[in-house]
Structures are given as C-alpha cells and as structure tokens.
Nucleic acid binder design. Structure first.
Lengths: 253, 253
DNA sequence: AGCGTTTAGATTGTATACAATTTGCGGGCA
DNA sequence: TGCCCGCAAATTGTATACAATCTAAACGCT
C-alpha cells in the first residue's frame, strides 16, 4: 500500500513532536483479526477509511475538496470498489458529504452548524467532568495535572500553537478519564468536526487569560473531585471557546 | 422542506446580525436529487441502508443476527456491490458490527454499554429541554401538549404499548423542538440503540405512576418555558428510565 | 451577444467474475 | 477418545466491465 506523501501541517507536526499519536481514534468498532506475527489484518476499505480520515483531520484534504473515485483509487493503488466502501464509512461519520451521481466532498461546516455543535459538546464535556470526578484514577489526575502545567507554561511563554495542542490533549484526556466509551465516541466525533473548521487562530490577550484562568478552576475542581463544580465550569468554558472561534471566523471573512 | 425560520435565540440573532443564514440544513446527510415528478432518486446503497435500518429498528432483524451478503442481496434483488456499501453505512452508525472476512451481524448491546448510553442520552435530552424552552414554537408546544395528553390517557387506560409509543414520540418531538440538528442526530442514534435492546417491557405500577408524574412536570416546565427546571427534570427522568430498563433486563435473564 | 439545446466526455452506479479467507468436516494417528 | 492436519464448501474481498447519469463545451437560433 503506497501511502500518499503529505506535508505535515503545523498541527500534526506539533503533535508528533510531542510524541502524541494524532487523533483520538474516531471509533475502532471494526475488530481486527491478527496474524501470528501480530500484524493487523483488515480490509482495504477499512484501511482506506482510516487513511482518508487522517488526511481530513490533518488538513491534507480541506473542507470542500472533491473526492473523485478514479483519482483516489489510482493514488492509493486499489480499485474503486473498496474505495467506495471506505467513502461510505466516512459518509456515515459525516466526515464527507455525498450526493447521488455527483460524488463526495469533504464536509464543510457552516458557521450555523458550528454554532450548533458547541452546545452539544458542552454538555458532553460537562458530563465527562462529572463522571471523571468520580472515576478518574490517581494516574489520570497526574496526567491531567501535567497537561495543565504544560498549558500554563505555554501560556507564560506565549506559545499559541503549543498552547492549543496541550489544551486539546487535556480535554481529550479528561473525556477518557470519564470511562464511558459511548460518551467518548460522540465527543470525539464532534471535536473532530470543530477542529476541522479551521479558522485563523487568534486569541485576544483577554480571552487567552480568561481561558487559562478557567483551566485553573477546572484542574482545581477535578483534584477536589467536585463533579458539580467541574461540570459547570466546563460548560462555560466551551461556551467561551465558541465565542472565540466565532470571533475568529467573522474577523477573517 | 417545510421547515420555517425559528424564533431567534440569542445565538441565531447574533449570527443573523452578522449576515449568517440560519436555515436548517437538510439533516439526511445524503442529499437526494429529485426527478420532475417529485420522486426521490438515490443510490441502491442508500435505499438498502434505509430498509435495513428500519428492519433493525422494527426488530425484524434481532441483535446478533448474521447478515450474509449473498442472502440479503438475493432477498432485495440486487447485487452484492450496493448491498456491501449499505452495510458499510450501517457499520459506521454502529447498527451492525463487522469483522474482516467474517461478515456482519446486528449489533448487540451489553448491559454495560446500555448503562453507558443512558447518561449521555440524559444530558442530550436535558440540553434539548433547555433549547426547546427558548426556541419551541407555539405549534410545537401544542403538539407536545397533545402527545402528553395521549400519554396520560394511555396511562389511565393502562395501555402499556400505546403508552410507550406516545412516550417515545413525545421525547422525539421535544428534541426536534430544540432546533439543533446536531443534537437531534446524536440523540436519535443513542435512542435507537436503546430501543433495540429489547427487554421485557414490564413497568411496575409505582414506576409507571412516577413516570407519568414526571411527564406532568416536564410539560409544565415546557409551557412555562422554564429551561433550567426542564433540564433538571429530564435528566432525572432518563435516570429513572434506565433503572426501569435495568431491572427489566436483570429480572428476565 | 445572449440563451436554450445538443452532445461528447467525465464520473458515478451496478453487476459479474474471480481471488482470498474462513469454516467445518472427515481421516489419519497417537 | 482426543487431536491435528488438510481439504472442500461457503463466504467475503477485490477487480473489471458496462450502464446510467451528470457536466460542460459546442452549436444553432433569435
């Protein structure tokens, strides 16, 4: 399988630097057989879907990009049949949009859809907070504390990119700590949507400061295992994040 | 596309001020072309997916059922190619499970997975309540009031089946009234999972009475457009529903 | 020029053929 | 009996061929 060479975006590069595996797996619901030598064995359709998903998350395939079957199948060196099946998988995940007889394109979120997404993410992350306050292990708390310190350090250094990366990692980890796969799956899907809606990441000094302050509250409530407080803060935090994103989008149009 | 503009929430107002159109997008992720005579035209894969989805929801295909391609394609009178694409769509929706080279089966939820699902549904429906309290039209309220009356009538008549049906429609309609397609999509997916986990639908007299009582509170808060109260009641309501379901499952095993 | 119509090329949709993998059964053997 | 091997049937995975549909450029008309 010839993998398509792709330039590392700032985000993927950044994460790789940190040694982080890129995205939380959207969903590994497809069990994989394994050969004796431990190699994963799946179908081409599944592999192609994974690759395409990664390319979309990484920004190699920008929203709105048309996905032509012949094109892609040649680039991947496979026939159209498994490629079409891969597209169907991504269609159901809402990563790509589809019109009969007219092909597929990388889904593009309107501001409206983005605005709809945030409140949903908000309640999910609030729930994650509640659950994590109960079920997070001490190791989880350690990891989150470390990530929090990273966030603060990057704020102090005014390193915006690294700040975003650590921030994202923190929230993902928080959701994991809730120990609810269903919750995690739906959260990841929404988080992916938002992340793909790339906007010029400007953060005003005030918003940035406030965001950090909220993070202080988050980690404090978490370490106190105060689920109710955590839930409230997280939801407000997401609301503010949407405001930031909205401003960034509107300013750059 | 009979959906009309909703009363402006603070968000929609804001967006409209900035020139962003808030018209709801077509929720079926797969847009459908139409012929001159208004007939929907889609691909076989999409049609098959719809049929299979319905069969699974209706219980024609019980959890654990093996889905053999040749079998199904003959029953539907199509070749395996579009059928396989339909399966891929449902795989990504988690309606069916898949193992490479070993085919697909209708997904079966464990009690653990069911237990995970309810809290997530809970916060989503709570959010739906908050939003609906703001953006539900008067027509929405009328419909919901009617459905509520139906629920009460079926309780009085002790008609369990009709009660469940009306109950389900009420909750679906409530989520619709929130005017957030993203929310609705995720809610529906989870509701479908729960519905498929068929358990012997026994409702103790006490639980039944309590459920109806909660519904009284729900409709009252809704008509008072008290989002906070509605949110709280709904979440508790879902929690109680899970307890009922859990008891039913445990008792029947 | 402007505008609908036609038509060739491109692209997607479906069927079929064949390859690869799994499954289950029967035979040989300790 | 129990177990392991290997083969045949069943089933899934992939490629290719052809049909249906869409797109856009060329054409002719007013």
């Amino acid at each position: 399988m010839a993998r398509i060479a792709r330039p590392a975006t700032w985000l993927s590069f950044l994460l790789m630097q940190w040694g982080y595996n890129l995205m939380p797996r959207a969903r590994p619901k497809i069990s994989e057989s394994k050969t004796s030598d431990g190699k994963k064995r799946t179908t081409l359709a599944v592999q192609l879907a994974e690759q395409l998903r990664e390319m979309i998350f990484d920004g190699d395939l920008e929203p709105g990009t048309r996905l032509q079957e012949e094109d892609l199948s040649q680039r991947f060196g496979v026939s159209r049949t498994p490629l079409r099946e891969a597209l169907k998988l991504l269609i159901a995940e809402d990563l790509i949009s589809f019109q009969p007889n007219r092909g597929a394109t990388v889904t593009q979120l309107s501001l409206t859809e983005l605005a709809e997404t945030f409140p949903v993410m908000g309640v999910l992350e609030a729930l994650a907070g509640e659950l994590a306050a109960i079920s997070a292990s001490d190791a989880d708390l350690d990891t989150l504390r470390q990530l929090h310190d990273e966030i603060v350090a990057n704020y102090t250094a005014r390193n915006l990119k690294a700040y975003f990366a650590a921030n994202q990692r923190f929230h993902e980890r928080l959701v994991e700590a809730a120990s609810n796969d269903t919750l995690a799956t739906h959260y990841h899907q929404l988080a992916g949507r938002v992340r793909r809606a790339r906007y010029r990441a400007n953060l005003s000094p005030e918003r940035w400061a406030q965001s950090v302050k909220e993070h202080e509250q988050i980690i404090a409530a978490l370490e106190a295992r105060d689920g109710a407080a955590l839930s409230k803060i997280l939801r407000a935090h997401i609301d503010h994040k949407f405001e930031t994103v909205r401003d960034a989008i509107l300013k750059n149009d």
